[in-house]
Design a protein around this nucleic acid. Structure first.
Lengths: 358, 358
DNA sequence: GTGAAAGCGCTAACAT
DNA sequence: ATGTTAGCGCTTTCAC
């Protein structure tokens, strides 16, 4: 059997059993075509000064014209490197619905931009929000060198375990005591407080809080809500704290339920813009006016906030900064340094939905 | 030098120069710990019946307890396989803004779900919408075995070239003549026609069309708009066709400009819900009532459509079906079969923004 | 039933 | 300035 057969244009074609799909070009092919060794091609393509400029150029041209690109899988294996970060958007196990909150695309885009800038690829993955630790598999299997997880959900503990296992990890969420992993998040306590203080300043006294306080971010916002009440010498009604989930359909039902429960309120702090909008709709369909009868404040300040009717007062989160901060944190962990958790400033954007009652 | 040194717990630690970050466990480590060869571990972990059940179980336990998982990079290289699909969301080159239209997350989620179901990973990538062919690199470099591209943008030609190069490709967009690649998309012509017919039926006669007809999807919707006019024995005013881009900020400006241009219209067909909402806002800020003075119809029927004030009439796109169709198409191409383009049915959801003029 | 050894596509010493 | 060679972590014939 001839080893040096130069008769084939492309390495290994027609050997395998299957009807081989256009086998990808590999370095050996380029080498043969250029009449040099693979080592030379490798060096030429990586721009090594060891190769004579003319040869380098010739090889580069050849590769380009054939759309050849170094196989990154093989390259990474050999170089022991991996430039992929997994971004995990947990999904609500009950309703396998895909998350409709625009906040997620927004932060995803920001992370994608930041990763691209640093030359990393982004593997998008969805895991059950009840089993965040399943994301660790992406690291164990070497698919990604690090993880960015959007939200702690109910599993601070699982995230801690991942971190204890030394899985490089940056999490969008609230900073919690005894936390082993790095979080980046808006200042939820302050955001909750700003929004609540604003409603109180408008003369609202019975302010409903919409959100599932089992989630750290929401819990912190609730703390802010309480703090603002305390600062005004008031104490909030516990029955006005409604456990509304983020997922759209479940949220709709819970909001309807709240409105029909007979609870009386003249202000609402919702933990997402979506919830706020759903609440406004539920109120209006019951003949209750916003903002005259009930003032509503949302959270995240997504683009829609400015476009609804009435335009929505909302707590603005610095999404692009968040994306960068998450990526920076993770990269510095990968570089061996430790990354402190960061809390980013937020600010209330006042619009029509919370205008002062007449 | 001892080859068989069993003294090290982990392969290659403390050999390299750098302060080695917790070197990942590899098969050799498991093999040593289990007192068998790597071949046995490999077989055991892949559930080969060649291995005695007891041994297999023991090895599985060990691996599990150590969070060991086969390195997929190496596995893929060896097995000549790759289970990654790249999903490309082009960005508008001018405004490097991340796309704020919720439609993109929505379809991204649908694709992610469909890919997960088939055991594929999803690499999310953003490319300049003017250089869609740059996405081919993901395939050339072996990072992904196939591409799903969201939208044709202005570069039908580049997509055709990719397809001609045999890059496995499925595109969300409009079906065009002489198209070498596979598209999946809503029935844009019909969607445009349904929306327009609805507006005409409400007595509207001067209907503005908002969208950049350079984009195939938009062009098809415009065709539907014209067809509906023709069917009613009417002909649309060319000056009411406004080239509004999808990107939020640019759209806002273009819409303001249209409103101030003196163009008179009593109906609007917008090519996204975002545009529709922006238009409603622009009109109202000028004292024009929706739907009394101007009826507005959006496109995509995103969740917000039902939640704005007035609620938005919109053309509903079957996003989950679209995600599955895109994935199925790509997978069947990968399997060697050809995949026909698909046009999915759409339907108009009537809401308040287009109620009949009194 | 298990081990030894070759090789997936590439890079980096070490030759020359 | 270029070629030879030995692996990266894994799977899989082929031996035993």
């Amino acid at each position: 059997m001839l080893q040096d057969s130069t008769s084939d244009n492309v390495t290994k074609n027609g050997q395998g059993g299957k009807p081989q799909i256009p086998a990808r070009l590999q370095m050996a092919d380029i080498a043969r075509l250029a009449g040099v060794s693979v080592a030379t091609v490798s060096r030429a393509l990586s721009g090594s000064p060891l190769i004579k400029a003319a040869t380098r150029e010739r090889i580069a041209q050849l590769a380009q014209s054939l759309n050849y690109t170094v196989n990154l899988g093989a390259q990474n294996l050999r170089m022991q490197k991996n430039q992929t970060i997994a971004v995990v958007i947990p999904f609500d196990a009950g309703s396998r619905q895909h998350i409709s909150d625009p906040f997620f695309l927004s932060i995803l885009g920001a992370i994608a931009d930041a990763l691209t800038e640093h030359g990393y690829d982004m593997l998008l993955s969805r895991v059950d929000s009840e089993q965040l630790d399943a994301a660790g598999r992406l690291f164990d299997a070497g698919k990604a060198v690090g993880l960015i997880i959007i939200g702690q959900w109910r599993h601070h503990d699982q995230l801690n375990q991942l971190a204890a296992r030394k899985v490089p990890l940056a999490v969008w969420g609230g900073e919690l005591p005894q936390q082993l992993y790095c979080t980046v998040g808006g200042d939820n306590k302050d955001g909750g407080a700003q929004a609540t203080a604003h409603l109180l300043a408008q003369g609202r006294r019975r302010i409903a809080f919409l959100g599932d306080a089992d989630l750290p971010e929401v819990w912190l916002r609730l703390e802010g809500y309480k703090r603002a009440h305390a600062a005004a010498g008031l104490s909030p009604q516990p029955d006005l704290q409604a456990r509304i989930p983020f997922e759209e359909e479940a949220a709709r039902q819970a909001i309807e339920h709240l409105c029909d429960s007979g609870a009386r309120f003249d202000g609402v702090l919702a933990c997402s813009d979506l919830m706020a909008i759903q609440m406004i709709q539920a109120l209006r369909s019951r003949g209750i006016k916003v903002p005259q009868d009930v003032a509503v404040v949302g959270y995240d300040d997504m683009p829609i906030a400015g476009y609804c009717e009435p335009s929505l007062t909302s707590v603005h989160q610095p999404i692009p900064a968040a994306g960068q901060a998450l990526v920076n944190a993770l990269l510095s962990m990968l570089a061996g340094s430790s990354a402190p958790s960061r809390t980013l400033p937020v600010r209330l954007i006042e619009r029509e939905s919370s205008r002062k009652a007449s």
